[in-house]
Computed example of a mutant assay.
Amino acid sequence: MENMNELIQPGDVLIVDRGFMDVSEMLDDLGIQAEMPKILPKGQKQFTTEEADASRLVTKIRWVVESINGRLKQWKYLQNVVSNTQIPYIGDNVKLIGALCNKYKPPFSTGEKDNDQNLGCKNEGTVQEKNDLQERVAREGLHRRICSWKKIDADDSLPCFPMLSEEDLRNITVGVYQFKLAKSYTQEHLNDESEFTIMINSDLANI
C-alpha cells in the first residue's frame, strides 16, 4: 500500500465500490482521490439531486469494470472462491484468461475515441444540470396536490408524447448503461398478469 503513490499520476481518481469505505481515510492521508457511490445517511429518505447525479456518474464508470469482471467470471476457474493454493498462479491465469477474452470476445469499447470523449463530457455535464422538474414540484407544491390518475393502454396513449428512436434513447441515457438495466427495471414493475401499468394525469401541463 505504501508504494501505491508510485502508480498514481497527478489528477488520477480511483473509482471504487462501497467496500473501500473503511480505507477511504487512509487513501485521503496518502493524497489519493477516491470516488465511490453515495451511501444514504441514516434518517435521510433519498439523495439530493446533486448526490444522486454524482453517485450515478460513479456507478456508470464502475459499470465498465463490473462488465469486465463478469466476463472473466464466465470462466469456471474464476466463478467460485479460488483456493489459497492457487495464489502463486492466479496472476498468470487471469492474464491468460484476459488474453483469450481479448482474442475471441467482442470489445466493450467502440474504439472511437472522439465518441467516448464526448460521452464522458456529456456525463459530466449532466451532473451539473439543475433538476427543473424537482424545482417546479417544490415551487408549486405538486407533491401535496391530490390528482386524478388514469391507466392508459395502446388504444389510449399519449398523443403528445414524442416518438423516440433507439439513438434518441441512447443520447438521453448517455450510453448503454441504462439500456442494460432496462429489462430488470421493467420486470420490477410488472403486475401479477405480467402487465406494465402506466398512469397519466392530464391536469398538469408539460409534466
Rank of each mutant, 00 (worst) to 15 (best):
T59L: 15
G31I: 05
G125Y: 05
D192L: 13
N80Q: 15
I207Q: 15
V137Q: 01
C101V: 02
E2P: 03
T173L: 10
Q117N: 13
E129P: 10
W63Y: 13
E193T: 14
I172A: 02
D203A: 11
N102E: 01
D12G: 00
L190W: 04
S67N: 06
M1A: 00
K42V: 08
K105G: 09
G120W: 03
S67C: 10
H143G: 09
A182P: 15
V81P: 15
N93S: 12
K151Y: 10
L158P: 11
E50L: 13
S194R: 13
M163Q: 11
D168Q: 07
V13L: 08
R139S: 06
I97V: 01
R136E: 07
K130C: 09
E135K: 02
H189Q: 06
L190T: 03
S83M: 12
P88T: 02
N69L: 05
S83T: 10
D153L: 08
L142D: 00
V137I: 04
R18F: 13
E135A: 01
W75T: 04
P10D: 00
L96I: 03
T59V: 15
Q74H: 14
D203K: 08
Q178Y: 12
N93M: 10
D53V: 13
E25Y: 14
Q44N: 05
S148A: 07
S202F: 10
Q178S: 12
C101W: 05
K38T: 07
C101P: 00
E25I: 15
I152L: 10
L7I: 06
D53Y: 06
A54Q: 15
I146D: 04
N201M: 02
H189E: 07
L100E: 00
I32S: 02
D192E: 07
K103N: 02
D53I: 13
E188C: 14
S157V: 04
A52V: 14
P37N: 04
K76A: 13
V176D: 07
S83Y: 13
R144K: 10
I200C: 01
R139N: 04
G111F: 07
D168Y: 05
M21C: 14
I15T: 06
K42Q: 08
G120E: 04
L133F: 09
D114C: 00
C101M: 05
L30R: 03
E140D: 09
T85V: 12
G175F: 04
K151T: 07
E193D: 12
V64C: 11
P106G: 01
P106L: 05
N115T: 02
N102V: 00
P88W: 03
D22K: 09
L169K: 12
A154M: 12
G91K: 02
Y89P: 00
T186C: 15
R18L: 14
K122V: 05
T173W: 04
K183V: 10
A138D: 12
D132S: 12
P88E: 02
L100D: 00
K45F: 14
L158M: 14
K103Q: 01
C101N: 03
K38Q: 12
E51F: 06
